[in-house]
Nucleic acid binder design. Sequence first.
DNA 1: CGAATTTATCTTGACGTCAAGATTTATATA
DNA 2: TATATAAATCTTGACGTCAAGATAAATTCG
Lengths: 164, 164
Amino acid sequence: MDAIDHILKQWARERPDLDTGPMGLIGRLTRLRAHLSREMEKTFSRFGLNSASFDLLATLYRSGEPYALQPGMLAQTMLITSGTMTNRIDQLVKTGLVERRRSEEDRRSVAICLTEAGKALISEAVEAHVATQHTLVAGLSEKDRDQLTALLGTYLAMFEADQA
Amino acid sequence: MDAIDHILKQWARERPDLDTGPMGLIGRLTRLRAHLSREMEKTFSRFGLNSASFDLLATLYRSGEPYALQPGMLAQTMLITSGTMTNRIDQLVKTGLVERRRSEEDRRSVAICLTEAGKALISEAVEAHVATQHTLVAGLSEKDRDQLTALLGTYLAMFEADQA
DNA sequence: CGAATTTATCTTGACGTCAAGATTTATATA
DNA sequence: TATATAAATCTTGACGTCAAGATAAATTCG
């Protein structure tokens, strides 16, 4: 019995005409994400980061040498606006974890690069983050975990075709 | 092939020591929620609402007569802080969709009540929202939908025991 | 009864995000 | 070549959220 069960019961009483099947799915997904995010933020804050700054550093890190990507490309893969991206970069530049390098070929363009400090920090933070994620799924059986991952993949693919 | 597949491949190349199984699950869930929320916000904005104000009005509405609950109770069920709750209420009071009624028995306490206008609006908005949710899950087979809902329920229950 | 604690709500200040638009540079078209 | 269009990034102002603390009323208990 979770909070969504309670909500669906209320709807059934007040508005029995509504088919709340989809709400059961989407509601649980939304609420689960809130719980998971809250826990993961704790790990990030141990490294002086939040999910936004962690995500940016991690994206640069996993892109491999030379650990440099453009703001526009980053914003697109992170599903955020360009203004938000500028702000995120500003914060990380202030703390010395990334730096901006203007491009020579296209002078509109900028490369965001991990500094040595940034690389060292994110390398550690990622390990802690992966450990946290392990504990967060530990309550599920391996079978449930695999099934859930597969179903979420099927669903997500409907919103994100061809992002290979 | 979704965006998470791409991310996991990068991690496998850069940090093959990390077990990213849980990341596949949590990453897809997080990203899916972002897509779903973005779509649902469109419906809310048609009624001059956002997900926050919709959620508050809907919570009052589905609680049934007399469509009145206390801020603290609302904040708890919505997983938000009391300060955020105050702000949300302020907005809805300004637009005349809810009103504050001080309690007679406990003068620290306030009841947040749907106005007639608020009830009329949320009644309509809920119908549109349910319709949107239907289209958002329409791509999944009924079997997948049921399985996914059940698995999310199992998982969510680990964070929300005994909220009947 | 009276002091300490708890409860319910609101206030403040900082922060992250977005939409819309500004700026600068590159590219396409006539 | 000149003009228009497109692309990449940044700026601005508004908004929602949170953490921490303030305020006020109720409750506990010595």
